[in-house]
């Protein structure tokens, strides 16, 4: 194929052989030799890769691989470990003893040493709480309470409103996180018949400001306040609920277990409440005291407090 000819006209190709290919009548491919330094560059990359293979994990061998000579030493729970070089170990090291990790720990200590008022009144400390708390909330809380603490109707309480069963100040929230909570309301299926439950439902709705049949409300009130139902023992006579029992405030229009506010009409609302009285409630939040440090719980509680409903 090769008519190893000279390029005739162009001075740039003077004396340079061509590959013999010609396009568009006069477009020739010059066959210039590569510069020698380029070859040296190639050899340099070869040497680089040899050194790399020696130092770092490189070649697969059967079901394992060559580990390389370089190592990573990192600390886990005060115990020093050394392994062949790998980026996961580097990450662990960074999380344990990296600059950012150390700074974070330092700041966590500052929060631990500060009183609550100091934290809540200081933009810098609050900014750290919000940023560190967001990460922890995502790790430990958001699976149930959802990102941002909106919760799920009937299962997980909303943490962003100001309706607290157990108390919404930072200390109580911290207690809740540390020890967990067991929310319990007995079922009344044996105690109250369907009509009685309906009357109680009418009374509870009246507490929340809904209008209803006065007679039903009156009878429901008797059950609620009397020995028959005994609801007042936990929900108190005025319906605002005993914090020590985690009994919800029934006098507002915030409902955690049943969507009363979203129900169609009075009958539907009563049916929802009646069913809840029939079934009872049992909800549990696990304790985190053995998994998180006091400082972390303080940060988390303050973060949850910041969602908006904190008291």
């Amino acid at each position: 194929m090769s008519e190893s000819g000279q390029s005739p006209e162009a001075p740039a190709g003077k004396g340079v052989p061509t590959t013999g290919h010609t396009w568009d009548d006069n477009l020739r491919e010059l066959d210039n030799p590569l510069p020698r330094w380029w070859l040296w560059g190639f050899y340099a990359t070869v040497i680089f890769s040899l050194i790399y293979w020696l130092l770092y994990p490189a070649w697969p061998v059967a079901d394992t691989f060559t580990k390389g000579l370089s190592t990573v030493t990192f600390e886990v729970d005060g115990e020093e470990r050394t392994t062949h070089w790998n980026s996961r170990a580097l990450l662990v090291r960074d999380m344990q003893t990296g600059d950012s990790a150390l700074r974070q720990r330092e700041f966590l200590q500052v929060i631990d040493d500060s009183t609550l008022d100091e934290v809540l009144g200081d933009t810098n400390k609050l900014a750290f709480v919000n940023s560190y708390g967001r990460g922890m909330f995502g790790d430990f809380c958001a699976a149930c309470h959802q990102t941002g603490g909106a919760g799920l109707m009937g299962v997980y309480p909303n943490l962003a409103d100001d309706n607290w069963h157990w108390g919404g100040d930072v200390e109580t929230i911290a207690q809740t996180i540390t020890h967990g909570r067991l929310g319990f309301m007995p079922d009344y299926r044996e105690v109250l018949d369907e009509q009685q439950r309906d009357h109680v439902a009418a009374y509870v709705l009246s507490l929340a400001g809904y209008e209803g049949d006065a007679e039903k409300i009156a009878r429901g009130g008797e059950i609620f306040q009397g020995r028959e139902g005994g609801c007042h023992a936990c929900h108190r006579h005025d319906g605002t609920g005993l914090r020590s029992q985690g009994a919800p405030d029934l006098t507002n229009d915030i409902w955690q277990n049943i969507d009363v506010a979203g129900a169609e009409d009075d009958a539907a609302r009563r049916a929802l409440i009646s069913q809840l009285v029939h079934d009872g409630v049992r909800q549990e939040m696990p304790a985190f005291g053995d998994r998180l440090s006091d400082a972390e719980i303080k940060v988390l509680a303050t973060y949850v407090h910041q969602f908006g409903g904190g008291q």
Binding site: G148, A150, N158, A160, N163, D249, I254, G308, G309
Partner: peptide
């Protein structure tokens, strides 16, 4: 803050 977009408080 988008999660949740809004919440209702106890005073309505």
């Amino acid at each position: 803050v988008r999660q949740p977009l809004f919440v209702q408080l106890s005073d309505g």
